[in-house]
Design a protein around this nucleic acid. Structure first.
Length: 569
RNA sequence: CGGGCGGUGGCUUAGCCCGGCAAAGCGCCUGCUUUGGGAGCAGGAGACCGGCGGUUCGAAUCCGCCCCGCCCGACCA
């Protein structure tokens, strides 16, 4: 490809609406252009890199025994209504109505398509296991699209679905996929980790996220300083100091706290630490009222709360809920909650004594509140949100919060979909049983952003060979000198014929522009033909990743390029 | 959806407080001069200042409503 013809106009300055480095560089280097929030056009360079990722994923999926199919994006609503996800996905699913008035959706994921498909075709345990995958654009009306390709409303995903006859089989299929995922991310040169995660709307029990470490990322995860624990923030736990305080029990005393209804206001007013206040938060879990108790310096993890309660939907009390219940927002305490409220306390407050908490009246708090004597706890659960510095659940080491981009997520679904959709096979004894399923996603367009985020410097992108749109750029440094142009052209043709993925920068611009663009786009290697070298019969080679420059005789240039590319990461 | 910030030629921005000829750099076109790390000079094209309404003799500027985008948060590959 000649750059004079390539549909790629690089930008000297970052567009104002891009903040993340990967986003800015992908736009500046002419890989992508924004169409609207969370929706991007793939330009030739970006599309080539995206295809490379796709092919890596395909080869590893095929190698792991999965078979590629292609499922529709436009979906009927019925199976979604059966599994409850038509509602559960809510506004995150793009919904439309056809001319006949039927509800349709754009696919955010495809369990509801693949499960009935397999159930209709593979009816016997003899057919199992089977694993089907596709690479297709997905649609989710995200609450907040972010960082360009990192979280789009339209994104390219590889989704695979395994079907097994029993739990052991499902686990084996799962392991095979996890190993394939490791190879995919290794081949993409990603610095990544595997963590325990929350299964969200997909459901199921065991699941893992593959996280690419980045300074900007849509995801927060927790790691132990000793490296023995890592989990997504939504799933992370911590050791709670269970040792009971030996403090003497103080009497329950009301104190006036006029106008002070935030934790900060109250403890400052009373001259105490936030950890001494017992926060009482009202939730509705599948409709039932639940009070959650945590220390004043900790937040509730609603994902963990939902799981602890076995609830599908957990949301905080609205003002209407407060009005209907007669509880006083801002001055809640567990002492006088009605009997129909389930009181859930985070394990970390178990040892605490003499709490400050609300008095259930405006402008009143109490001190000296104690569990057992003054209030009851119906359930002790692990529902606290991990904070920086909490103790590791494995070793007690200090936990740290880091950001990452989730590039893959694997789930052991069990019968989450096969049961409601009545997707069954006949086992050895002739009994109908639901399939044991797994599902496995890789964000392909997201990998493009994650790799850009991890492989760059202040000059631009630094693509690993496996993902670079082209391996090499041949730069003619002096377009006014026919000898230079002729030599560059000749080398370009030769490299092309040898099968290299090479572009020829034959644009009529100054050398500086070409060098800057070559660094910005991030070709792994650059070959520079200029009048300076030509005098001594040489060309210059540069490795983008290390900045290493060498000279090679013109005749030897193609093999020198091949050797240099060998070295490139 | 809540909080914060923003929308002015293709891009980055100034102008907005304090109303009075829409401006600069980059990019683009023409010509000349240049040519190894985003060259120089000269000329040129390109903007109903996000939209609608209001105030005013006069609105990019003031007021109201709406739309769009970015960042933080709640959700996710």
């Amino acid at each position: 490809m000649r750059l004079s013809q390539l549909f790629a106009r690089t930008l000297r300055e970052a567009p104002a609406d891009a903040e993340a480095p990967s986003h800015q560089l992908l736009i500046r280097a002419a890989f992508i252009r924004r169409l609207m929030a969370g929706v991007y056009i793939m330009l030739p360079l970006g599309f080539r890199s995206l295809r490379k990722i796709e092919e890596i994923v395909r080869s590893e999926m095929d190698g792991a025994g999965a078979q590629e199919i292609r499922m529709p994006i436009l979906l009927p609503s019925e199976p979604w209504k059966i599994t409850g996800r038509w509602q559960a996905y809510g506004n995150e699913m793009f919904k439309l109505v056809d001319r006949g008035g039927r509800d349709l959706g754009l696919g955010p994921t495809q369990e509801e398509v693949v499960t009935p498909l397999v159930a209709a075709e593979f009816r016997s345990y003899r057919d199992l296991p089977v694993n089907l995958y596709q690479v297709e654009w997905k649609y989710r009306d995200e609450l907040r699209p972010r960082f360009g390709l990192v979280r789009g409303r339209e994104f390219l995903m590889k989704d695979a679905y395994s079907f097994d006859a029993d739990v052991e089989g499902m686990r084996r299929s799962y392991e095979v996929m996890v190993e394939a995922y490791r190879r995919v991310f290794d081949r993409c040169s990603l610095d990544y980790g595997v963590v325990e995660a929350d299964s969200g709307l997909i459901g199921g029990d065991v699941n893992h996220e593959f996280l690419a470490r980045t300074a900007v990322g849509e995801d927060v995860f927790v790691v132990c300083e000793n490296g023995d624990y890592a989990a997504d923030l939504e799933a992370a736990t911590y050791q709670s100091g269970d040792e009971a305080s030996d403090e003497e029990l103080a009497p329950l005393t009301e104190v006036a706290t006029p106008g002070r209804h935030t934790v900060r206001d109250v403890v400052d007013f009373l001259g105490q630490a936030p950890s001494q206040l017992l926060k009482t938060l009202m939730y509705r879990a599948d409709g039932s009222p639940v009070a959650v108790l945590v220390a004043g310096d900790r937040d509730v993890n609603e994902h963990k709360l939902g799981r602890a309660l076995g609830a599908r939907e957990v949301r905080m009390f609205t003002d209407d809920d407060f009005a209907a219940s007669g509880l006083v927002k801002g001055y809640l305490g567990p002492q006088s909650l009605p009997a129909d409220v389930t009181i859930v306390a985070d394990r970390s407050v178990r040892g605490g004594r003499n709490w400050i908490t609300g008095a259930n009246q405006v402008d009143q708090h109490v001190t000296g509140a104690n569990e057992g004597r003054d209030f009851r706890v119906d359930r002790w659960e692990d529902v606290g949100l991990v904070r920086e510095g909490d103790r590791c659940p494995r070793c007690g080491g200090s936990l740290r919060l880091e950001r990452a981009i989730v590039v893959g997520h694997t789930y052991q679904l069990g019968t989450r979909y096969s049961k409601p959709l009545r997707a069954t096979f006949l086992d050895e004894t002739g009994n109908e049983k639901p399939y044991l399923m797994g599902c496995y996603g890789i964000g392909i367009s997201r990998i493009l952003a994650a790799v850009a985020e991890q492989h760059r410097d202040d000059r631009g992108l630094i693509w690993p060979k496996a993902l670079a749109p082209y391996q090499l750029v041949v730069i003619a440094a002096n377009m006014d000198q026919p000898e230079v142009v002729r030599t560059a052209e000749c080398l370009y043709e030769k490299l092309l014929s040898q099968g290299h993925e090479v572009v020829f920068d034959d644009r009529d611009v100054t050398a500086g522009v070409k060098f800057a663009d070559a660094d910005l786009v991030g070709y792994p290697a650059q070959l520079v033909v200029g009048s300076r070298g030509l005098r001594s019969g040489t060309v210059d080679l540069k490795l983008r990743s290390s900045g290493e420059r060498i000279q090679a005789p013109i005749d030897d240039a193609p093999s020198a390029v091949a050797r240099l590319l060998q070295e490139a990461p």
